[in-house]
Every structure is written in C-alpha cells, then in structure tokens.
Design a protein around this nucleic acid. Structure first.
Lengths: 233, 233
DNA sequence: CTTTAAATTTAGCCGAGCCTAAAATGAACA
DNA sequence: TGTTCATTTTAGGCTCGGCTAAATTTAAAG
C-alpha cells in the first residue's frame, strides 16, 4: 500500500510545493529524490492512479487531500523521531536527519505518538520545524523570514533551520546558531549576499546560501523591511 | 547489501538451527518465513554466493560465521527494541513483537546501542530472552528447561518465554506468567501433557503447546528429573 | 530392488522501482 | 510563423524478492 518510495515522493512533492498552489515539476522531483526523470514520470502515473496526486501531463503535479495526509504524516514522523533521537537517546543534532529519513517509514503511528507524548508534546523538532498534534496539518503559524532578507543591526531570534548537510549544521551549532538563539547582522556584502553576524560576543561569516537556511521571526523586521532591497541573489 | 529479506532469512536459519549443528531444511524455512519453497531455494543460492551460509543441495543449510554475525546482530536489535518499546514508550508486552519485527531492520547500530545504554544495559528482553553486549553472541548462559519437562510440586522460576502470538502472551501475562514469576506444577494430564499450575494463590490450566513455550531454570529440577518420564508428547 | 511419496530445485513469470535511449511535447526565439 | 531546445513521457531493460508449475533428487516402503 504505502511503500517507502511512495511516502518519499509525496513528502517531496509537499515540500517543493510549499504553501503555494503551484505545480511541482518532474525534474524538480527527480533532482530532490536523486532519481532519473523517467522514474518520476512512472511513479506519477501510479500515484495518480491511487488518487494521491493530480497529474497534468507535461505540466506537473499537485497533491490531493489524500496525498497531503500521507505526506504530512510522514514529515510529522520524521520530526518527532529526530526530536526523540536527540532528547531521549542523546544523538547529536547534526546526525539525526539520516536516521530519521529511514525510521520515518518504519515507525508506526502508535509508536511515534508515544514518542511525542514521552517528549512532552513538543511543538518543534531540533531544527525548529513545527510538529503538529496528530492528524493536524504542518503549517508553521509563525511568520518567518530568511536571514538573508533580514535587516541589519536588529536583534533577531533564530526560529528554524531549513534542511542542510550535517557538516553545515555542525558548523552552525558550534557557533551557537541553533533555534532560539539571538543574532544580529553586522554587515552584508552587496554582490554575494554574504553576511557577518553577531551571536553573543562572537562574530561569524555566513555565505548567502547558508544564510538562506536560517529562518528568523519576521515580527520585528517588518518595520525596516521596506527600506531594504532584499539582499539575496 | 544487507536487505530486509536477507536479515530475515539469516535470523530464521539461526533460530531454527538452535545450538545444534543440524542443517536447516528449505521447507522449515519456507514455513517460518511464510514464503513458498522455491523462493527459499532461490535465496539460498544468493546467501551462499555471499558467503553467509553453506548450502548442500537437497540437504539444507548452515550459517557461516559471517552469516551468524548478521543473524545475531538482527536478533539483538529486535530484543533491545522490544525492551525499549515496553520500558520507555510504555507499549504493552504483547504488542511489541510486531513493531520490533519491522524496526530491527531499520534501526542503526548506533541507535540501538544508545537504546541499550538508556535502558541500563539490560540482560534480557520483555520475554526473558537474553540481550548480549554489542558484538557478543546470544547464547543463554542459563540452563533452561521447558515447563512441560519440569517435575511436579516444585517451585520453579519462569526464566523466559519462547515466541508466541500476542493473544497467548496476553493470556499468560494476565495470569502472572511473566519472566521472573514463581510457579509450580500441581498436576499433569498423562496423555495430552496439559498442566495445572499454581501462580501465587491462583491455579491455571495450560495445554502442552503453551507449556512448551514457558522456560524455567533447570537448576532445582535436576534432582528429580530422572524419575520423570518427560511428559511432553 | 523397485516403486512411490515427499522434499527440493529449475524454469519461467510478475510487480515494484529504478535505469538509459529515443520520441513527443511545449516554450522561447528568430 | 517556424525552428530550436529543454522538459517530459514512452519504450524497453534490469534487479530484487516473491509466485506457480514442472522436473529432479532423496528417502521410504513394498
């Protein structure tokens, strides 16, 4: 019924679509999943036949409600497993994603919900991504904006980190750049978008690509945002 | 490399061989794994090619040291996961086997060893089966004997339970028949081998098949064992 | 020693999920 | 408008791990 591959496809469609209504392209899926484009075409036919997506040939796919439920449940499992591996088993922040990528497909709803209870019903995972209660959707209630779009010289609260390689996460964690941390941008290189940021007493450099992964609360940036021109390439 | 199917085959060969040196037959494997005999034949060829078993056509298979290591590691993961699900996540004793059957193939060594540490390095799982330290073998140091071979009117300590269906485990647990419990046999029906056993104040009936799954410490039964004629069919 | 029954293996097939190469489609541009 | 080029789909093939049906081997019984 709901195989590993199927869950991975739905999860990836969900993530690529974001909250937008735009269709997800075959090639984008192929790249994210690390498979060839024809493999995606084939799977699309299957997912459409099972009523999990709507597929307009040559135009891309949308999740149906049924498909979205599977995607959300899979992502929820991933996040709870990550939080559990960190909090209960003491694995490090940067190594749990690979484990969770596998376990999300094996852990039953019963087990994952027990994990969530044992953790005290956390609302976010180690990267700051939201964990909803069972059967609710995943949308982040917070208004977030990427660090590379944030204004200079303002104290910002780091809310969550988009998916990154373990090395990058370790780099960030070693410099105190974890969810909840306070940072401010000291300088922005106009062409590349590289940033110098302050975390406590220390200053660190982030290139634009890494900065894009750091999401901060948008609330206190609103006032200044009109004056900035975006910054990211 | 080490797929789900491969691990299941090796694990099952290990269990069917027991500590004996006897070969495991294709049909026995097919039955335990719930697949057709030709599927087993095919997989045997593959396992032999990978040096995990020795296969003498028409005569059955033996594990090699390499195959035994995979089997033992898989079984160890199963038992640690079971204990973890019971102790940490509060699942019930009878429902964890099915979960562990899946998770044993997904959980990394790193994760399972962290579970074992968090549990305080337990030496046995919820059914009383031994859990060795990492990379050691599984052999039960205790001398055990089945309840259906044990003498009458002697206090016996229940050491472990062989694998059973959840309903049977629930039946036993409800009557206090869990690892560590003290029992004595009040009566044995000669033909069928059915038993009446005392657990604390209560008396319960066990048929021979169920009694065979209950393993007790053999120490105190030795003296009397010569006088009995075995009992089990 | 032969016949028969049971166990095992071979042969050939299927679905899942991937691949490459080739054809079809759509979009952008001359 | 027509051409080109990137994207997508179709066609055909591969491995894994199952299956059934038929052949083979072993073992047991006459």
């Amino acid at each position: 019924m709901s195989s590993r591959a199927l869950q991975d496809y739905l999860k990836t469609i969900y993530k690529l679509a974001g909250d937008s209504t735009s269709a997800v392209s075959t090639s984008a899926l192929a790249e994210r999943l690390g498979v060839a484009a024809p493999s995606v075409s084939g799977m699309m036919k299957k997912l459409a036949a099972e009523g999990l997506i709507e597929h307009v040939p040559y135009q891309g796919v949308h999740l149906t409600d049924k498909g979205r439920r599977v995607a959300v449940e899979t992502i929820r499992k991933h996040r709870i497993v990550e939080q559990f591996l960190v909090q209960v088993l003491g694995l490090t922040w940067d190594e749990v994603d690979a484990e969770a990528e596998i376990l999300e497909h094996c852990v039953s709803s019963r087990v994952v919900n027990r994990m969530w209870e044992v953790l005290g019903r956390p609302v976010s995972d180690p990267h700051g991504s939201p964990i909803p209660p069972p059967d609710e959707d995943l949308h982040d209630a917070r208004r977030l904006c990427s660090l590379c779009d944030a204004p200079l010289h303002v104290s910002l609260r780091l809310a969550r980190l988009s998916e990154r390689l373990p090395e990058e996460l370790r780099y960030l964690a070693e410099r105190g750049l974890v969810p909840g941390a306070s940072v401010s941008i000291e300088e922005r290189v106009p062409s590349s978008g590289a940033l110098m940021v302050r975390v406590g007493e220390r200053l660190h450099v982030l290139d634009a690509l890494l900065a894009q992964a750091l999401m901060v609360d948008a609330i206190m940036t609103d006032a200044v945002l009109g004056e900035e021109d975006g910054g990211c390439t």
